[in-house]
């Protein structure tokens, strides 16, 4: 039976073969399959926790030697680069992952190194506080891969979690790639669209640390009060945001909100600034947004002497009368912020 489409293409067979070849490369080159992560939901601050990653790497197109690359998104306070050991078992051999040198550039990163390229491509994995970092590792040896070869591998990531002592809730991120192609992404979708990224990325649901001496730091859930930068000393400019949309509080519909704070100094003094004036007034970020901000220089705000430093501050958000107060988690307990860099 003849086709209704009477298109005559010279060398039809040749072009047909070419098209199949190109599609074959695009769809199958260097894909990572069966990517899965096993992690506990909770852990105790300071304990050693094992995270497991499994994947299968298929190399179809070219034969070359490549290192596996593993990116781990964690809170900066964990200092993961110093508190993590990663071993692998694979169908091509066993060994350890080593930290990627900071001078190694990500092949698709236009001059960015691996951690910077991962941050640019994947951000902070849906966490709400920009105090996460990508820590990047590679296999201690390169694997000579031939066309058509596939390797299955299992990583055991052993981390001493919560080096900063904080009771943290965060979403951890995992990326598998290889050293030659890097974060190559022909279709521009992070995950999905056409499934031919040369890497695989996943972010898990919220992981919780408990039992630590530090503050509660929640990267997962919107907070009534949040900070920018997340880590400061009293000689930084410090922005406190109050988000009235997070919960229904006694301050709903307040015409203006104010900061009522007590600073605790390293020499054991407590200095309270609880007034409803221009000094303590939070500015609404946009009309009707119900989000308010104040940026202060704590050293000056609490009137410290040159020799004094702040260790922490406790505070409430109040209305113009000062009688209606909102504290941590919409309770009567104050918010607590500790001044520290790690």
């Amino acid at each position: 039976m003849r086709s209704f489409l009477q298109i005559k293409i010279k060398g039809r067979g040749f072009w047909y073969v070419c098209a199949m070849f190109v599609m074959g490369i695009v769809i199958t080159c260097c894909s990572i399959q069966n990517f899965s992560v096993v992690q506990p939901d909770t852990a105790v601050v300071g304990s050693n926790v094992d995270f497991k990653v499994h994947f299968k790497f298929s190399n179809i197109f070219a034969s070359r030697t490549e290192n596996f690359v593993f990116g781990f998104l964690v809170p900066k306070g964990w200092d993961a680069a110093h508190n993590t050991k990663i071993s692998y078992t694979s169908s091509a051999g066993n060994g350890n992952l080593v930290l990627m040198p900071g001078t190694t550039l990500e092949p698709q990163g236009n001059g960015l190194n691996w951690p910077a390229a991962m941050k640019k491509k994947f951000g902070i994995g849906g966490n709400l506080i920009d105090d996460m970092e990508w820590v990047v590792y590679q296999s201690d040896v390169g694997f000579p891969l031939s066309n058509g070869e596939a390797i299955t591998a299992d990583l055991t990531i052993s981390v001493k979690v919560g080096a900063d002592g904080n009771n943290t809730l965060c979403k951890l991120g995992y990326v598998i790639a290889e050293s030659y192609d890097g974060l190559h992404d022909p279709d521009g979708f992070l995950d999905g669209g056409e499934k031919y990224e040369y890497y695989a990325e996943t972010v898990t649901s919220c992981f919780q640390l408990t039992g630590g001496p530090g503050d509660v730091v929640d990267f997962c859930n919107p907070q009534l009060s949040s900070y920018d930068p997340p880590k400061t000393l009293d000689n930084d400019f410090f922005t406190i945001t109050y988000d009235g949309n997070v919960a229904t509080t006694p301050l709903n519909n307040a015409a203006a909100v104010y900061l009522c704070a007590t600073g605790n100094t390293s020499d054991g003094k407590s200095i309270t600034v609880c007034e409803q004036t221009a000094k303590t007034k939070l500015t609404q970020t946009a009309a009707g947004s119900n989000r308010y901000k104040i940026t202060l220089w704590p050293h000056q705000f609490f009137g410290l002497s040159d020799a004094q430093t702040l260790t922490n501050m406790t505070y409430y958000i109040t209305d113009a009368s000062g009688s209606t107060k909102v504290g941590y988690g919409n309770t009567t307990a104050p918010f607590v912020y500790t001044f520290k860099c790690k």
Binding site: P229, K231, T232, D236, F237, C341
Partner: peptide, 8 residues
């Protein structure tokens, strides 16, 4: 002026 990670 404060934490080394905060650049002004």
């Amino acid at each position: 002026p404060g934490c080394p990670n905060n650049t002004y």
